[in-house]
């Protein structure tokens, strides 16, 4: 069953053709639900997404603990069509339904000491078939610099192609940072904590020489095992060149002015 038709309308929406809903919901990296690309869709039932509580705390004046449905009443979601580039070398065009993370952060009022935002995903090893100790250090955590988190492109998504997000896509609440490799866009978020110091991030802990804190899409910096110069757009037959910051350089390159992006990869 097709969702409603999504057409680009906002300033950040890409005009490129959307990836098929089937591919977006059956080809996923979400290790909590299994390591294979098809596992998250197959094991989706293991992730119970309601009721779901999110905590926003740390360096903020008004910490909150609230239900995910309250969150979407506070911030009515809108369509955002973004490119998504996986660090493995494939990409999609995905019509998210969500709201700017900045709106939520401003509402809880960061203190003057807040510099970073830490995100924590669900931890339920007894329920999630992929949450095994030898795979990764659970729970999955990610982080952004506060200015990255406040950027209008940075999204908290609750839906895809006009429909409620499915577990394999990170239901009920996930981050979408379209200029960074997909692993930064943490799924099934239960906690958002503002911090003074850079938070630990799961993949940078697991393989620090392969995955850095920034993980900005960068065709000039290869992964140790493969080039990042090109990508396989799902649904297409050939490879296409990868763009700096995944095509969002105009919007976000200024965040990294003066930084050596080879060292801060």
């Amino acid at each position: 069953p097709a969702g409603r038709v999504i057409r680009p309308s906002g300033p950040y929406d890409t005009r490129e053709p959307l990836t098929s809903y089937r591919d977006m919901t059956t080809y996923n990296n979400f290790y909590e639900l299994g390591l294979g690309k098809g596992d998250p869709a197959r094991n989706a039932g293991a992730l119970v997404t309601r009721p779901w509580t999110v905590v926003v705390d740390g360096e903020v004046r008004k910490p909150v603990t609230l239900d995910v449905d309250t969150l979407t009443r506070w911030f009515p979601p809108e369509d955002r069509i973004y490119r998504m580039r996986c660090v493995e070398g494939w990409s999609m065009v995905m019509p998210w339904l969500g709201f700017s993370l900045g709106d939520l952060l401003r509402r809880v009022e960061p203190t003057g000491a807040a510099r970073y935002v830490q995100f924590t995903a669900i931890h339920a090893p007894d329920k999630l078939p992929g949450q095994r100790p030898w795979v990764l250090d659970w729970p999955y955590t990610e982080g952004l610099r506060l200015d990255e988190a406040l950027h209008p492109l940075t999204l908290l998504a609750v839906g895809l192609e006009g429909r409620t997000l499915l577990p394999q896509n990170g239901a009920p609440l996930r981050l979408v940072v379209p200029w960074k490799y997909g692993f930064k866009s943490i799924k099934a978020i239960v906690r958002i904590t503002l911090t003074r110091t850079p938070p630990p991030t799961t993949w940078a802990l697991a393989a620090p020489h392969e995955y850095g804190f920034y993980a900005n899409v960068n065709p000039a910096v290869p992964h140790p095992r493969w080039s990042q110069a090109t990508e396989q757009r799902i649904g297409e037959s050939g490879r296409r060149p990868t763009l700096p910051f995944n095509g969002y350089a105009e919007q976000v390159a200024g965040l990294y002015a003066g930084m050596d992006l080879r060292r801060n990869f």
Partner: peptide, 20 residues
Amino acid sequence: RGQDVHLGRIWEDVAERPFV
């Protein structure tokens, strides 16, 4: 085929990446 038969890219992989 996955590299679009791009010989330059393939050679770079073979020469520079122990995995390949």
